[in-house]
Design a protein around this nucleic acid. Structure first.
Length: 589
RNA sequence: GGGGACGUAGUUCAGUUGGUUAGAACGCUGCCCUGUCACGGCAGAGGCCGCGGGUUCGAGUCCCGUCGUCCCCGCCA
């Protein structure tokens, strides 16, 4: 192959096939860089030694597909190119065949600056000829294989589940597939194989996994595509620790493919601690946590600052940012949409004039260096003093501080350098977040929703609070977080039908409603369901992080745009009236 | 659904306060060139300034609308 030839291959006769990356025509001497999946090699065509060949080569253009027969020759010392792996050799062509010509492409795979995404996506086949894309897609294949091997070696079976399945009203919007046989009825593409994998546990396949496509009709982000791939797994008779071990094992195998040697076990943190220390349920561990600095202020201090002494006062520390100008501080306030009742103090100098003792204590408490940026986040006195109101106000302080921490670390990443790559496992800070709340209160609808999904088991000791105090029920649910990105989410499931019913009731569903939505599943639970649990991880996100990419589109061969359009095939499209009629569907103008 | 950025040659971009024939680089075409590797030199072609309306003597430039791409919020059990 083109990219694999080395000085040790000198003297061999080789047949190479590939694309013309670049042609350098010096008149009677032509150089062609031939490119295939493995890289580039320089072909030499000399008019003097082969005029007919030279004539053919002079008509060759970028992205023509060539077959070359030639001799591998070690280059003279003066002509070695140290910038390419094959730079010590070149191919003296004896024969050249144009297998296909090419229109001038809208952009060249050999270009240093890559074109805009619209053009890249429309001409994805050319974009994917670029070495970066080739490397990402190769990495994806290797990582998938490593995960399959690892899970298989632990006794997991890869089992397929349907893509055409049943719509469930919970969760994300479904992509629907109309049924021709039953006009007006629809299949749904799975948001995840959740219920199928639980059924497989009931069926006795005690260790299941699948690298599987999932579909969610929600708005996109750089790290969210409407169809994406999960590494999905489930085991019977699990413990949380057992699930963590299996995931850590396959992540070690996956990262090894990218030359990173991870060191499990990964640290763990309870959800409540994550909120208190990082103001978010997916903390980025590469920077210092938020510090509680309530104690450095007296009650008089806080009253003078119009801050509520009963609410948390926390400090966000961003190392090595130095002093900020007035303008920068104003700009920074724009970074985070301020929540009502949350106050931000970002001018320590001014604070120091009025409260010198507090600021001295503050610096000591957060162990701040002189050039560290400190921002204080606290709460204005709340009007309502009930327990729930105070809890919400406190959470608003934590999450605002968390958002501030993220925005500032992003903005000043050049200064603190915490995101700089070292090429070691230290670049990848994994974290298990555990003990998520079972329910979240939905202010709009005035009811409780499942924080993870409604098949998640609560902590056994919280069973009693399911109806009396849903907000206090902890779930056996866990997330795996990498550098502030949620990679995966899982739980120990409910295997008792009576508990499952209670959960549906707590979610405000009557028995009839539960039966109409999940009847098949509730029935299955009654036939000897083993305890079981599992997790699903976003494969695309894993590859994205390993590839050092900023967008999922860099690691998905044929991705969709932010408006969920495939620019290459131009999908979605309207369909013919005949098709619609056959499906019994009428489209409103 | 909301906010922001962008849209000018095949590509990446510049285009002043609204004022003559809209520029550059790369790419492309032709010619020259035997050691280049982002080859070099000379010459040339290439534009619905996203689209539609408006203001104006005059619009790439100002206003309104619309479409597209990207980022964020909402949303994503």
């Amino acid at each position: 192959m083109c990219g694999t030839l080395r000085a040790s291959d000198a003297g061999k006769t080789v047949t190479l096939m590939g694309w013309v990356n670049r042609r350098r025509d010096l008149g009677n001497l032509i150089f062609v860089d031939l490119r295939d999946r493995t890289g580039l090699v320089q072909i030499v065509i000399d008019k003097e030694s082969n005029p007919a060949l030279h004539e053919k080569a002079s008509r060759v253009r970028s992205e023509y597909v060539l077959a070359i027969v030639g001799n591998v020759k070690k280059r003279d010392d003066s002509t070695i190119n140290k910038n390419v792996p094959t730079g010590e050799v070149e191919i003296i062509a004896h024969e050249l065949r144009v297998l296909n010509d090419s229109k001038t492409p809208p952009f060249a795979p050999s270009d240093q600056a890559i074109g805009n995404e619209e053009v890249r996506l429309k001409y994805r086949y050319i974009d994917m000829r670029r070495p970066e894309m080739q490397a990402n897609i190769e990495l994806r294949s290797k990582v998938s294989l490593a995960i399959r091997k690892e899970l298989s070696s632990h006794g997991f079976l890869e089992i397929e589940t349907p893509f055409m399945t049943r719509s469930t009203p919970e969760g994300a919007r479904d992509y629907l597939v109309p049924s021709r046989v039953y006009p007006g009825s629809f299949y749904a593409l799975p948001q995840s194989p959740q219920l199928f994998k639980q059924i497989l546990m009931i069926s006795g396949f005690d260790k299941y996994f699948q690298i599987v496509r999932c579909f969610r009709d929600e708005d996109l982000r750089a790290d969210r595509q409407p169809e994406f791939t999960q590494v999905d797994l489930e085991t019977s008779f699990p413990t949380q620790d057992r699930v963590f071990e299996v995931v850590e094992a396959f992540l070690v195998a996956a990262f090894r493919e990218a030359g990173i040697e991870l060191k499990p076990p990964f640290p763990r943190m309870k959800y409540d601690d994550a909120i208190r220390k990082y103001g978010i349920d997916k903390p980025d561990m590469r920077l210092p946590e938020i510090t509680d600095v309530r104690e450095v202020f007296t009650e008089e201090n806080l009253n003078a600052l119009s801050l509520d002494p009963l609410l948390p006062v926390v400090a966000v520390r961003i190392p090595k940012v130095g002093e900020l100008s007035r303008k920068e501080r104003d700009d920074n306030k724009q970074l985070v949409a301020s929540k009502p009742g949350v106050k931000v103090i970002d001018d320590l100098k001014r604070l120091e004039k009025s409260f010198p003792d507090a600021v001295t204590k503050l610096r000591a408490t957060v162990e701040a260096d002189a050039d560290d940026l400190l921002v204080i986040v606290a709460g204005a006195p709340t009007e309502e003093r009930t327990g729930l109101a105070m809890r919400k106000a406190a959470e608003a302080v934590y999450t605002s501080a968390g958002a501030m921490r993220l925005a500032l670390t992003q903005k000043y990443k050049d200064k603190h350098g915490a995101f700089n790559k070292t090429g070691t496992a230290n670049d990848y800070r994994f974290l298990w977040v555990t003990d998520f709340p079972m329910f979240e209160y939905d202010d709009k609808d005035g009811r409780w929703n499942a924080a993870h999904h409604p098949f998640t088991s609560p902590h056994e000791e919280d069973f009693g609070k399911l109806l009396s105090d849903p907000g206090a029920v902890r779930a056996l649910a866990y997330d795996i977080v990498l550098n502030g990105t949620e990679l995966g989410s899982g739980s120990i499931r409910i295997h008792r039908q009576d508990i499952q019913k209670q959960i549906f009731n707590a979610l405000g569903m009557t028995d009839e409603e539960a039966r109409s939505r999940f009847g098949f599943f509730l029935e299955a639970l009654e036939y000897g369901t083993p305890p079981h649990g599992g997790i699903a991880l976003g494969l695309d996100r894993i590859i994205m992080i390993l590839a050092g990419a900023d967008s999922l589109r860099e690691v998905i061969p044929f991705p969709k745009t932010a408006k969920a359009v495939d620019l290459m095939v131009d999908a979605p499209t309207p369909v013919s009236a005949t098709q619609l009629k056959e499906l019994g569907i009428a489209v409103k103008g």
